[in-house]
Design a protein around this nucleic acid. Structure first.
Lengths: 330, 330
DNA sequence: GATTGTGCCGCAAACAATTGCGGAAAGGGT
DNA sequence: ACCCTTTCCGCAATTGTTTGCGGCACAATC
């Protein structure tokens, strides 16, 4: 019992051929009920399980999907992964999860790993300055389904699933206007990312129509940057009456700076964020936010991947609708 | 170029045998330098890569490790996974990550999946009421390295890696005594878990020696439970002068309740938690905590796993030391 | 000229599962 | 007695890689 059971071992025990055992276990009509019963009994006893390597070798399918994210340890991505894993499991797929660490080099290494493990599909959120799209296009040619999510390529004919960035930013801008805010500090992330550009452009498109509204845009890649930017603004001659945060990381920095000031939310200054939902609830008052759900995006992306592998539908972009979740910060 | 390159294709192009090509690529001394050069050039051109299924089939090794956690979307586990993935990659291993959802049934299904994919090792944090230890013992017999982490089995001769729970709880208790607290509300998690028992017992062992110190113990499985318990205590006739939180989830519930009251931290009531480090920094004042680092535990567990697979050392329990991180809540 | 040695390479089996094809045995019909 | 059908099963090839063994050809030695 030490070594795992194989068809060969079962067949030699029963004085049958390997092929007969294989067919018996698969209910092939050629095999008599009597033989089937005996084979199945022994197989169960020996805890036989087909060797997945051998099966994969023949079928050239692995039932494994590659999932590449910048960092697993991240509110957004971990909920994405959590959702994706659950839905993948339901359809018999497992996930090979790899981190790029926002490094283009490591990203391409990850892709090679996916190739090496011959995954059936790859879901990827790109690193900044990624140069992996050509490689991915080649993989797609070779029959691997590719789904981009969240950080998607700006160009190319690919399957993408992402937050409805323009819509979300538009909702945010309209909400801020509704509350008659006039002096807005808008904090965005890495301005190289298309996600940042999309959100910023849609946001500004609304606000710049209003002549009496002042909007100051700043970019901050990290929480600490956001804290400093906020502190600067709060100590400036024209203190903003509203702060907009493009992400959870930025919101955290803003709130750290707010703690040090004695401005009240929302009486003196209001706050609106775009968030996965966890962080805004931690503050008092709870921060209003436009929901950008990693969990929902994970479900959507996995659905797309599974559809894709069934019936090679053509490439298209899918957006996850967003909505305003009201806290008391506005 | 559509189909992936194989030894056979290379060999037929060069009029060599498959075995010669294989040996040439592996720098076997039997093969002439001339042939090696030609083979390697064509292999590079055709982007040859050994079929991992075929290799695995022969070697019966996969270079994949199974990693089973209750939920990926969790502060502690996502930092654990992040660390584990990085270190695994360095040694040529990849991770198959599965979620049990704290469900014993799904946990055993995950284990079967690991078996099916013939992983080289399994790292697992057990679900409550798990009944997987026998199965895991069997897998270990079959040659799969098993490392338990965080939620480890109470009994059995296994490799375990976990937070030094007793030490952490002891530090917590001594810290609380140092600040002369007399009326303590101590909130613990699911009392079925050995992690809870260990922390509670070590904690109480110190505090119950002190006659003038009152300690009220409550169990709360979720954030909301913790909030309710805290609210109850704050509205009771004897308001505690200190709250101890066994975990981040509990700390969140406590702080939600605290927001509604006008008690000041640390003047009116002090707080000490056990935490991964992220949550305590979000509050004002920052909460003091005993560090229970998922990231460090991930590094430690992966090291143990890799050691284990190299030189079958005997089973042992490893503890990750902890320390007090001072905020201003005490 | 026959033997030995060396360099270079191919055959075939092994890993495990799957499957088209063919074949033996048994039964029934003429 | 012969043929045909049905039932049940095995042979062998296939997927790609690895490896022990053996073998061919050419050169060197006795």
């Amino acid at each position: 019992m030490g070594q795992p059971a194989t068809l060969k071992k079962i067949s030699s025990q029963l004085n049958l051929s390997i092929s007969t055992v294989s067919r018996a276990l698969k209910n092939h009509p050629d095999i008599s009920e009597n033989t089937k019963r005996k084979v199945k009994e022994l197989a169960a006893l020996m805890e036989y399980e087909p060797n997945s390597y051998a099966v994969n070798l023949r079928t050239n399918k692995s039932k494994v999907l590659g999932l590449i994210v910048p960092d697993i340890s991240n509110m957004f991505y971990d909920s994405f992964i959590s959702a994706a894993e659950k839905d993948a499991r339901k359809c018999g797929y497992s996930l090979l999860i790899l981190q790029s660490g926002d490094d283009p080099l490591q990203e391409s290494e990850n892709l090679k790993l996916c190739k090496h493990y011959r995954v059936d599909g790859i879901m990827i959120s790109l690193a900044p300055e990624s140069c992996s799209t050509e490689l991915l296009a080649k993989y797609q040619e070779a029959g691997i389904s590719i789904v981009f999510f969240d950080k998607v390529p700006a160009e190319g004919d690919f399957d993408t699933v992402c937050i409805a960035d323009e819509e979300a930013a538009t909702i945010a801008a309209h909400t801020i206007l509704k509350y008659k805010k006039k002096n807005i500090l808008a904090l965005f992330g890495n301005q190289e990312l298309s996600i940042t550009k999309k959100r910023r452009d849609a946001f500004l498109k609304i606000l710049q129509k209003e002549q009496e509204v002042q909007t100051q845009v700043q970019y901050c890649t990290k929480t600490e940057d956001a804290r400093q930017q906020t502190e600067l603004a709060l100590n400036s001659s024209s203190i903003p009456d509203h702060i907009f945060c493009m992400s959870d990381e930025i919101l955290l920095g803003v709130m750290k700076a707010m703690k040090k000031s004695d401005l009240r939310i929302p009486e003196d200054i209001s706050v609106l964020a775009m968030s996965n939902g966890f962080i805004p609830g931690l503050f008092n008052p709870e921060i209003s936010y436009i929901e950008t759900s990693g969990y929902e995006l994970g479900k959507l992306a996995m659905k797309r991947m599974l559809d894709n592998m069934d019936n090679k539908t053509e490439a298209r972009s899918i957006m996850l609708p967003t909505r305003l979740i009201q806290g008391n910060s506005l």
